[in-house]
Design a protein around this nucleic acid. Structure first.
Length: 705
RNA sequence: UGGGACGUAGGCCAAUUGGUAGGCCCCAGGUUUUUGGUACCUGUCAUUGCAGGUUCGAGUCCUGCCGUCCCAGCCA
């Protein structure tokens, strides 16, 4: 089933019950008879990077609105800056949008309109509403003023119209160098809105454009271009993100000066996702510095990355619906994304069996040479998928996690003497554990109940545990790439002064396992086939690397694992004797792996020492940091960077103080140098912050306890 | 410090436009189950940023505070 047909069947969009504020506006417009009852939107990417899930939100919005109102949605590349844009991105963006399940009505480029834009600009010049500026970029900045200072009119502001026309023509003809002059709109240098202080309309760039080649050496600025693009295409509602709110008066101003259609700009809040980064700059850096394997690395929040991860287009659309649409800044929870991924994949993925960490099982009462097949449905809730035959023989693999020699409470998987079901096959009982010299479990000797074919015992005895398995003789060796969140912390952008956001990367975000086994049916799969390995998770046959001979699977998302939760809760219950009083119902996911309390032993690991501050100085380029040299009685003083500058703007005053230093902290390489410890201070905010001092007769190096 | 926006549960979004706060995710429990999956059920969680005012009645209207975000590119 193609994703397009799925979209048409409405499974993705029809669970939105409420309208959003944008649809409310459109409803009102329609009711008022605006735009002759038409709705036209557009998705306007700049072809200078790959699309990410934030763009997906915008794509779903624009195409979704058009569809809902029987309107149109164009794809328009906003290619007004030749220096950063490339054709390579154009094709990638088109692929991503189609894959997401949308088809544009018109395909356009801003560069298609360069002639019209130039003509309109000339109109502005002739009307005395634009002038050629001869100030340098630096002077322009100075003349613009700042938030508190009104701008000053440029000396060229009243250049005669004829001269403006002539210079603008020469500008177009290439008679000036980059940055030498530019065209500015004559609006209001005193405006509190900086965008209205005579914004630049055209700048000179002697650069080759990916579509128009060398035809132009002047290129329109965003504010000038965008409204015209929308106008030319007859867009009715121009949807963009919040940061363009301040630009709307300019968007409107330009269009009001011309006898053209005037679309309405409406801003919405962009998508932020926790545990990831979304800015083009940071994504580029991840790629360039090889923290990931490229733009389509399955850990990337790019559309092509998620595609390679095995995320389905419909789950991305569903996610886009579920997060809603509003004007307030937001951070969506990646747990919601994972939830819709599972929800979608549960319905659409055939089930297979694969063993990630194999443990050999020998069925001692099963004949050595015998083989047989068990039939198993490909989907337990949807028999349209049909079934497949799974081979079985004396030697099998099960998951290491499904056996424990000393089972904990509530364990109903395999352990010595217990019986479990091999899914869709039979019941087995563990008779013996074979170990190697090091005491590692090497193999399990089991017996099977021949009466339990298919997995049910005729005597009706209940067997609670069910394990997945693979016949050793028939197993296909597969490679599994287990992906996890790229970052360890909810907000990777939030870093201490001097710390780098890259330090928040999750070092375990990729684990490649080569010794895995799967049932033979995987030979039937094609690249990009999404499957579930039962009881483990959803996987996808890698788009590029998978072949029947080199079966490589990417883990899309694990199944929910309630046993892991039980185990974890048991663990923390044992540690704290009684059940932890849930400290906060909002237990953050970041903290959930760390124990809620530490013991005295943990605390004793801290080597706290008295230290005398010998030197203290401001750190240039860091408005929170002080650089300290602290004598802790160990010969060479320790260099410590402390975020206390707001309190001690004059560092001199803390020299000589006896403070408490964490002496056995692993040194951290900061932008400014190595920080070899930490000083303790009290107070959360800078405006009430005091160093913890040791008073009385103590010497550097004395222990603090 | 000027201007523009935004504040509803741990997160995200609703609230018939002035009628007494609801859904999804998360979290905790339970039922069903040949996936400790799915599905279903239950529960925890909000004096709607704060303080006043108008009104029989305010999340919605008014006033004043507070907090957060955006804007000083010849980027988009």
């Amino acid at each position: 089933m193609s994703d397009e047909t799925k979209l048409d069947s409405g499974e993705a969009n029809n669970d939105t019950v409420h309208t959003n504020f944008i649809e409310d506006i459109i409803d009102a417009d329609l009711k008022a008879g605006k735009n002759a009852g038409k709705v036209a939107t557009r998705f306007p990417p700049e072809p200078n990077g790959y699309l990410h899930i934030g763009h997906a939100k915008s794509i779903c919005l624009n195409f979704g609105v058009a569809k809902k109102y029987n309107g149109i949605c164009n794809l328009r590349f906003d290619d007004t800056n030749p220096e950063t844009e490339e054709t390579e991105y154009v094709e990638a963006i088109k692929d991503d949008i189609r894959w997401l399940g949308f088809e544009w009505d018109g395909l356009y480029f801003a560069s298609d309109y360069f002639d019209a834009m130039y003509d309109h600009a000339m109109t502005l010049v002739k009307d005395g509403k634009a002038y050629v500026e001869s100030l340098t970029p630096d002077e322009i900045r100075q003349y613009r003023g700042d938030f508190n200072t009104p701008g000053k009119n440029s000396p060229y502001r009243d250049r005669p119209v004829d001269e403006n026309i002539e210079m603008f023509e020469k500008m177009k003809a290439g008679e000036y160098k980059d940055g030498e002059i530019c065209l500015r709109a004559k609006i209001d240098m005193q405006s509190p809105n900086m965008n209205l202080r005579d914004p630049i309309v055209y700048r000179i760039r002697h650069a080759r454009h990916h579509r128009t080649g060398d035809k132009w050496c002047i290129y329109p600025m965003y504010d000038w271009a965008h409204g015209l693009e929308d106008s030319i295409e007859g867009i009715t509602h121009s949807l963009c993100t919040l940061e363009f709110e301040n630009h709307r008066p300019l968007y409107d101003w330009f269009l009001e000066q011309l006898p053209v259609h005037h679309p309405q700009q409406i801003e919405f809040a962009r998508l932020n996702l926790n545990y990831t980064v979304m800015s083009k700059r940071k994504l580029l850096q991840l790629v360039k510095e090889n923290h990931v394997d490229g733009w389509d690395d399955p850990r990337m929040p790019t559309i092509c990355g998620m595609r390679r991860r095995g995320v389905s287009p419909s789950s991305l659309r569903k996610f886009s619906d579920r997060i809603g649409m509003a004007k307030r800044e937001n951070v969506a929870d990646i747990a919601l994304l994972e939830h819709v991924m599972r929800e979608d994949l549960n319905e659409t993925s055939p089930r297979l069996m694969g063993v990630i960490n194999p443990l050999k099982v020998e069925i001692e009462n099963y004949p050595k040479d015998k083989e047989e097949f068990f039939e198993a449905p490909l989907h337990p809730e949807d028999d349209r998928w049909g079934s497949r035959q799974i081979p079985f023989c004396r030697e099998l693999y099960i998951e290491q996690d499904d056996f424990k020699e000393d089972p904990p409470k509530k364990w109903f998987r395999l352990s010595p003497g217990t019986e479990i079901r091999l899914r869709y096959a039979c019941l087995i009982t563990c008779k013996e554990v074979v170990k190697d010299q090091n005491g590692n479990v090497e193999k399990l000797i089991c017996t099977w109940d021949p009466e339990s074919r298919g997995g049910n015992a005729p005597d009706g005895r209940k067997v609670k545990g069910t394990s997945h398995w693979v016949s050793a003789r028939h197993a296909e060796k597969i490679t599994v790439r287990q992906y996890d969140r790229l970052f360890n912390v909810e907000n990777p952008n939030k870093v201490e002064e001097g710390q780098n956001w890259l330090e928040n990367l999750n070092p375990n975000s990729l684990e490649i396992l080569t010794g895995c086994y799967a049932e033979p049916y995987i030979r039937e799969l094609k690249p990009e086939a999404r499957i579930q390995f039962e009881r483990i998770g959803y996987f996808v046959a890698d788009r590029y690397d998978f072949t029947p001979e080199t079966p490589i699977f990417n883990r899309t998302v694990t199944l929910r694992d309630s046993w892991a939760k039980i185990e974890k809760n048991q663990g923390s219950a044992n540690r704290g004797q009684k059940k932890q009083p849930q400290p906060a119902k909002n237990q953050k996911k970041t903290d959930s792996t760390a124990p809620a309390e530490i013991t005295i032993d943990d605390f004793a690991k801290l080597d706290l020492r008295v230290g005398t501050i010998k030197e203290a100085s401001l750190v240039e380029g860091a408005d929170k940091l002080l650089q300290l040299q602290v004598d802790i009685g160990a010969g060479k003083p320790r260099q410590v960077f402390a975020g206390i500058r707001k309190r001690f703007e004059n560092p001199e005053e803390i020299i000589g103080k006896n403070v408490i230093v964490v002496a056995n902290l692993k040194p951290r390489q900061m932008k400014f140098g190595l920080s070899e410890g930490m000083v303790l201070a009290a107070g959360g905010k800078e405006n009430r912050l005091e160093l913890a001092e040791v008073l009385g007769d103590t010497l550097p190096g004395d222990t603090v306890s």
